[in-house]
């Protein structure tokens, strides 16, 4: 049963914030507004992380998404667009079919989520800590961590090569 405790209230507000941001992002026409709406969503998600006792992740989320990625996207917009507005519409059939497909997919997800019994118990959240997280990352998952760092390096190099102006 859903009880009216603090976590619920926080979850409610934050999820409304995230969903509203997402929906606004889809519906806004000015690109800067879109990015702001998306940043709003990312902040909401960071708050959700906090309610889930993942404070470190929340911080990372704010730093990377709300900060770095949004700014990156803003640069992308500024460097590729001449006009400010997006040119949506003109494909009503496509939009309608997309709506149907996504709606069907959503209905399916909801059906599965609410039709499945989740028997898990609440974890012992007092054991959650940043140092525990660090230990997991650097001990148990050290090889994925290293692979990820290589991925980042490759992405960095690749991004530079791709974005570099070609010499004609």
């Amino acid at each position: 049963m859903i009880s009216m405790n603090g976590e619920f209230i926080a979850f409610f507000l934050l999820s409304v914030m995230a969903i509203a941001g997402a929906v606004f992002m889809i519906n806004f026409t000015r690109v800067v507004h879109m990015i702001l709406a998306l940043a709003f969503t990312f902040l909401g998600i960071a708050g959700i992380f906090v309610t889930l006792n993942a404070e470190f992740l929340a911080v990372v989320q704010v730093l990377i998404y709300t900060g770095a990625v949004s700014i990156l996207m803003l640069f992308g917009i500024m460097l590729t667009r001449h006009r400010d507005e997006t040119r949506d519409g003109g494909r009503p059939w496509h939009a309608f079919l997309c709506f149907l497909g996504v709606g069907g997919f959503f209905a399916l997800l909801m059906r599965i989520i609410y039709g499945s019994p989740f028997n898990g118990e609440t974890a012992k959240t007092e054991t959650f800590s940043v140092s525990g997280l660090g230990e997991s990352v650097f001990k148990q998952y050290v090889i994925p961590f290293e692979v990820t760092s290589i991925l980042l390096l490759v992405a960095l190099v690749g991004a530079i090569i791709l974005a570099k102006k070609e010499r004609s």
Partner: peptide, 13 residues
């Protein structure tokens, strides 16, 4: 690509 993605989504559903 978006049309292809739509088709694969419908197929997935």
């Amino acid at each position: 690509a978006q049309t292809y993605a739509l088709v694969s989504l419908v197929g997935l559903v």
